[in-house]
Design a protein around this nucleic acid. Structure first.
Lengths: 345, 345
DNA sequence: CTTAGCACTCTTTGGTTGTGAGTGCTAACT
DNA sequence: AGTTAGCACTCACAACCAAAGAGTGCTAAG
């Protein structure tokens, strides 16, 4: 869509003013913000044309204009200039990561909280995907006579552990055969290869040891499942109540939607890989509950590979110019931290 | 406070009707619920006296009565009969614990979710306290040449792990001396004994090995800190929006309060040990944000020792008769599950 | 002690009426 | 042809008022 320079200036001003105040913006209040040497009537004419193009709309006949989803879209794609994140804020963010660095889950949870505080929106983050990761190591640490803790480490640095119980004593010889099986059948395997058929054929091949080993094997399989499955974390839910756009029970519906991890996970994984930051505005979102919300998602990379996402969810009149760079900055930071943590083999 | 039988009956009926409908209850609507052979005027007189006693109040002059905090308190202490939890519900609850049994943190988180769904309130739960627990075992599992995962197990079955990095190669001899130090200084110690002075004197005694061992020791100490510190989990926040008593931004304030773990933790730990279930009504709570809320908390025991708490937070007109038994039932169940899981030594 | 009756209070609801912000249109102006 | 002043029009919103309804407290009689 081609717009005259003046139309662009007006559209941009309407969007930014509406984002700031939350009130529909009229021709006069627009003029006082915008140093243009034209009259309000001219602005009105231009706004009428922008309405005809579907970029602005009126809540009712005699009110100011607010941007449509398409209006926001045009603004984000063509008009917006990303704000810089100032240095002191940057230091503040980096400082908030304290010592939670070692555990990826904790790190991502923290990242969500930081982003929520920073943006005043609800924030979501996913743990690093296990896709393409393989099993680096499995250990069985005895806890009791019939109890061991199984620890599984993946090539992406994720560590999962679980207690396994057997109905038989787990003596040295049982553990030895456990390690043999693990070495032969698990280490080096992709996490996604550990599935039901694989387990079945493994069990079939175990022979006499099956009864004592089965609980341990099941635990390893469970852990692989857990590790390949990305977890979705949510922070700053209460921020949603701050945005007066969520009146009535839309706030409840949104919170309820955010609680279910599965649709959230889909939402995040659908974020475009090609773009730095993916912005979905209102009805561009695939879920009914998000019709009045915008979602800003960015992917973080570990060692150059896309591994997970971090994003925020707010009203469509979210402050794109400030928050898009914030999300971008935080995902990059998380990617760096994780890469750094696990680069030592 | 002594009340005539009729006053008790009336007070009880007012409380229960108000809990059910949320509307102030008047003398007439009360009569139709209550099969008493008296007139509305008599009821009015009784209600006036209950008001004078501070057990009922009126939102405005010509409205029905609602219970005061003292009214609820009298009801809970003297009038209420605990409802039974029906068998099918009981089975449903037990089924919802699926396979999350092994990890206490997961179990408690799940318990919170279940309770939130069950009661329609926000639910909080704490992980088992490390107070009185000792270190049962510490393991160092090599991950890379300069990286090990430290795993700490406590006598209460909590397992914490953390990756530790050193600036030197962690060869077999370093690990051996690590295990020696652990055996001598950590295993069998109470978690609370691992504090800064203890660590300082330990470091002083390490001698030449200090540089390679220090990161590992620090990790062990961190894990002990983590294990002794109980974590507070929150579920069902969105349920708060359902209760129309939280109008305006009281809902936001409450959510914001619940987000901060520290006051929540204090709240839970202040639950009376003597009583089965501790109920705090409105201003009985020590926090301003809970003035309009009731908190129902119960402790769970592992092997007979109080280890943590589970509770719910809702409006003061919460359904005490049904929900107190629910909370009680769930805490007992959690206690049983945890005891069972860790009784094998 | 109980109860019928009644005056009184206070919220809630619906209707009416201004007010003000903002628009669209027309006609004049550059 | 684009711009602007002027003006009639629309519509949400607040203020105000009246009627309705629920419920009370009080009084006097049973």
């Amino acid at each position: 869509m081609e717009l005259s320079e003046r139309k662009q200036k007006i559209l941009g001003a309407v969007v930014e003013l509406y984002i700031k105040t939350g009130e529909p913006v009229g021709s006069k209040s627009l003029l006082s913000e915008l140093d243009m040497s034209v009259s309000s009537a001219t602005v009105r004419n231009e706004m009428a044309e922008l309405s005809a193009l579907g970029l602005l709309e009126q809540p009712h006949t005699s009110a100011g204009r607010i941007p449509t989803n398409e209006g926001y879209r045009y603004y984000v794609d063509n008009l917006m200039v990303n704000r810089q994140i100032d240095e002191s804020l940057r230091r503040h963010i980096e400082a908030s990561f304290g010592s939670a660095l070692t555990d990826p889950e904790k790190l991502l949870e923290r990242a969500g909280e930081v982003l929520a505080d920073l943006t005043g929106c609800a924030a979501v983050s996913t743990t690093p995907s296990g896709e393409g990761a393989y099993i680096r190591r499995v250990e069985a640490v005895p806890v009791g006579t019939r109890t061991v803790m199984i620890v599984l480490m993946t090539s992406t640095g994720v560590i999962k552990s679980k207690v396994a119980r057997s109905d038989f004593d787990l003596n040295a010889s049982v553990l030895e055969s456990f390690y043999n099986v693990v070495k032969a059948s698990f280490v080096g395997k992709l996490l996604s290869e550990v599935d039901t058929p694989m387990m079945q054929s493994l069990v079939a091949s175990l022979g006499g040891d099956v009864f004592s080993l089965l609980p341990l094997m099941t635990a390893v399989s469970d852990l692989a499942q857990e590790a390949v499955h990305t977890e979705v974390m949510l922070g700053g839910q209460s921020n949603i109540l701050h945005h007066n756009n969520y009146y009535g029970n839309t706030a409840y519906e949104l919170l309820e939607f955010l609680r279910r991890g599965e649709p959230l996970s889909k939402l995040l994984s659908s974020a475009s890989e090609s773009k730095d930051v993916d912005v979905k505005i209102g009805s561009e979102n695939p879920y009914r509950q998000l019709m009045k919300s915008s979602v800003i998602v960015s992917n973080y990379n570990i060692d150059g590979n896309r591994r997970g996402s971090i994003g925020i969810i707010g009203p469509t009149r979210i402050d794109y110019a400030n928050l898009i760079p914030s999300v971008k900055y935080l995902t990059d930071l998380v990617g760096e931290l994780l890469t750094q943590t696990f680069k030592e083999e």
